[in-house]
Write a protein that binds this DNA or RNA. Structure first.
Lengths: 153, 153
DNA sequence: CAAAAATTGATATGTTGTAACATATCAATT
DNA sequence: AATTGATATGTTACAACATATCAATTTTTG
């Protein structure tokens, strides 16, 4: 587990190379998301921002910051949950397979997994047979995590 | 293609057996969804209800009706699109595989497909290895339909 | 019929997200 | 230092989706 500051620094370098800027506010939001270690809504992030950095920023800004971070592949948006989560591979060098997300319906815990190439290929074939094309094979699946299964019983 | 009235009648019988009631308003909404042959948001359904039946009902009622219809497996909710669609197998007798939905990001067209058992099983294995359990293996996938691919070019 | 349960209505509010436009900040020259 | 141009952020207003709460009505059942 790397230190957050290290991850941020590295992300900043990568942004610079791509000609974009990881500004102060963008760093702060990214840092919050990394430390949270779970998915958060834009409005939760606004609350956290205020609590952590003592400043209120407009909702619009948060959405723009999140859009930027997505564009830089530092953050994923979970469309099923309307939440945002730091990329699990944010501090790796190598490129990655398209991520798949498991979202616990009870506690909102999110796990980012990879699914075998062959399974994805099969899925894509099914989709193409129906006359569609996948935009991105990022799947989001409604799940129950082990913890909640146990506690529910 | 069966007549809508027949489908509704049959659905009403099935509800009765299960001890629930397919009331007048519920029938009307279900009928609208069947005839639309596409996914509609709760608020679109409110507009349609007013236009078709000349009565304004509160948003709350529409959501309750949609919850009910989902519970009876007559309607699916598409969480990615915040829309509702009549079950494609609403007038069949036999039980069905869990449906998978392809949603065109451009034109919102929705297709309900089935995916091979083995692919789903693989997916489930992946999920279980990560310590999660699928609530329902209903996948919703962001796609582009053939039509929109052609028109975009 | 009367009590209990289910359904529906009415009002208010919460949550997520975008549009349109104004202002601030930064970095590279002049 | 001043100008300029690009990028980032702020402000206001609003649209779309959804739920909380409580009252009124209808349906079912003892």
């Amino acid at each position: 587990m790397k230190k957050v500051a290290d991850i941020i620094n590295r992300a900043e370098q990568n942004c610079k190379i791509r000609g974009s800027r990881l500004t102060h506010k963008r760093k702060q939001v990214l840092s919050s998301l990394i430390q949270a270690e779970k998915a958060l809504s834009a409005y939760e992030l606004l609350d956290i921002y205020k609590a952590e950095f003592g400043q209120t920023i407009p909702a619009m800004s948060m959405y723009r910051i999140l859009d930027f971070l997505q564009g830089e592949h530092l953050v994923h948006k979970l469309n099923l949950a309307n939440k945002y989560i730091a990329c699990a591979h944010i501090s790796c060098d190598h490129s990655h397979a398209v991520p798949q997300f498991l979202i616990c319906s009870k506690c909102q815990k999110v796990e980012e997994i990879s699914i075998g190439r062959s399974t994805i290929t099969k899925l894509q074939k099914n989709v193409e047979n129906a006359g569609f094309r996948l935009v991105t094979p990022q799947l989001e699946m409604n799940c129950i995590c082990e913890n909640c299964v146990v506690n529910a019983a």
